[in-house]
Amino acid sequence: MTRRGLGEFEQQVLLTILQLGGEAYSVPMVVELEGRSGREISQAAVYIALRRLEEKGLVSSRMESPEETGTGRERRYFRVEPTGLELLQESRRTMDRFWAGLDTGMEEA
């Protein structure tokens, strides 16, 4: 992978934001990731990954105050930036190239 490549978990995190309508905070992301992966997901892993992606400029975030959320708790919402979207698509194209030509019988029976 190139220096600017995405790790598998990072891909899953970005895709989950998109699945949740383009903007999400860590709680529904964890639930969605657990539902799609079938295993327990660490909220710490998600949150730290999100901040790391933000440092790389692939996502951006905004804060919502306790009054704004209406729950008495702060939240940090993340959305995927164009650079992040681009990297996601590149990762998909790369994987497609690897899968090309393989018999569909390889999929789960």
Binding site: S26, Q43, A44, Y47, R73, E74
Partner: peptide, 13 residues
Amino acid sequence: QDVRVALAELREL
């Protein structure tokens, strides 16, 4: 701030 948010969201979970 991140410490607060991370822990708050974990409590929500």
